[in-house]
Amino acid sequence: MKAIINYIKEVVGGVKTLINGMKVTGYYISHPKEIITQQYPENRDTLNMVDRFRGEVIMPHDENNEHACTGCQACEIACPNGTIEIIQDRILNEETGKKKKTILKHVYHLSMCTMCNLCIEACPTDAIEMGKGFEHAVFDRSQLTKVLNKPGSKLRAGVEE
């Protein structure tokens, strides 16, 4: 007899714990305002990424199509994965008549980047920074290799001093 009573007690107690858990679920069904889901990608226009967000490495250019990259290769050395490749050449400067190192291409392999921020820390002239874009999906892998300096761009005057 005692065993039966204990058994019934156990069942009733068990059902109670289940109902207790269901209460939490019930609360959120009746309080839809507490649900925090974001409707991405519908909210793209209002989506604000934080200032420090690391999406990709970008090189800001000003209105004269000038950047601040001197081609010192500090970012290339700092990068742990070989993500950055700087192709440069000695080009004759017409004003001084001397040959001077100039970057031709600042190649950035997004597919290898781990967004560790070490290149940004290493850059002495703040020529590169972390962009906020995060939708990197493309159809072909080769599209992930980017040239950061825009065509025809040159070094901003006064950066090297």
């Binding site: 934080v50 420090r52 967004m115 921020n117």
Partner: peptide
């Protein structure tokens, strides 16, 4: 989600943060 938001604002990343550097913290 609330913690990852704090991380994102402080470190710039949500999971692989790389926030510590030898000698201190990055930001």
């Amino acid at each position: 989600e609330m913690i990852t938001d704090i991380f994102e604002e402080t470190c710039g990343a949500r999971l692989t943060m790389n926030y510590n550097v030898p000698g201190g913290v990055m930001f």
